[in-house]
Amino acid sequence: MAELIAAGQEPEILFWVGCAGSFDERAQRITRDICKILQHVGISFAVLGTEESCTGDPAKRAGNEFLFQMQAMTNIELLNAYNIKKIVTGCPHCFNTIKNEYPGLGGSYEVIHHTQLIQQLIDEGKLKAEGGESFKGKRITYHDPCYLGRGNEVYEAPRKALEVLDADLVEMKRCRSNGLCCGAGGAQMFKEPEPGKKDINMERMTDVLESKAQVVAAACPFCMTMLSDGVKHSNKEQEIKVLDIAEITARANGL
């Protein structure tokens, strides 16, 4: 971003990568695929790079409002300084926080999640599913991330992004507004679960297995971690792949 400003340019959209997308090895692959999609359709975009910082989401959900607002205000200052108008995020948590909680602290932007961007590009005819890996007839199910689904009622965009694949789309028993959490939200990602009889991602695995899906489509880096762990613990790594919608889209287009 800093480089673009130095060159006197303003990008169409800012890609907010997020902490997982920046540091988590698995999520980095999704980040690169989102970039490939943006480049493929010719959208001018920028990232904040080393200037990006945590939105404060995990701090806020854990009750640390101080830390959240410190992060938020610092980020807002930066975003406003760069005159950012539109943001696409690679993570539903960043999406929710910037979209809903930043305006009250002085940061109002048009914020969309990457699955919404992909859907828009498909609707506009700029993105298809051709020239790459075929998902035709593959049994795919979609896991609703809480902060995209119930949190912001984005249920259709990710599904539309899958519909172009001509795949065998199936819903899990608990889906859409009834979707079951992967277990990572509310800062659970960063702590051990409380004592119980099983882990939440293993509970979700019962839905995944019941759906007999070959691909579980995810749209959140934390869900990605939890679902991948679940598949691993169920010894189903050969049969079931967990892929982000951005990865599926990139693969289908041979990017």
Binding site: F23, S53, C54
Partner: peptide, 28 residues
Amino acid sequence: PASLNNMFGNVENNGAPWKYAQADRANW
């Protein structure tokens, strides 16, 4: 819980919930 305190510390110091350096944020 202690693990959440660690997370808070990381967010405060490195701008990420994990112990990674801010300078490495664009390494992807």
